[in-house]
Amino acid sequence: MNINIAPEHVLLNINSGSKKALVAKMLSSVLTIDIDQALDIVMARERLGSTGIGHGVAIPHGRMEALEEPLIVVARHIEGIHFDAIDGAPVHLVVLLLVPSDEERKHLELLAALARLLQNVDVRTALMSAESYEQVLDIFQTSVK
């Protein structure tokens, strides 16, 4: 599986004060979408169940009609932020995933791959200490086969 992340979609030092402000900030790095609509979609999905999967990781996601291909934004919050995660712990790594409305199967696989990757403690440590966009991209591309 090929994971592509644009340089402007990696935010290594984000310091938003709330879940919503964080997601809004991440989405505002994407210039090609309707940010309000994307925020509504992601926050509505969060209301159905938090995507904070524990160990300081969250993978908020949603489907958007106007999208051509999957879109990934990565953010790192050094202090940690309250995200209603299943283990209640603050979240440091947020990988936001937006996918086009069709091709359901492929997107489930992508989401599962991301979740598997971020469950690996070595990957999390590497991401927390990464210093550049290239390092982050490398971690994603070498770890997801």
């Binding site: 169940g49 995507t51 999967i53 993978i59 997107h107 989401l111």
Partner: peptide
């Protein structure tokens, strides 16, 4: 009881 899992899109 009504919460969905991660894989719910």
């Amino acid at each position: 009881l009504f919460q969905v899992h991660l894989e719910f899109f």
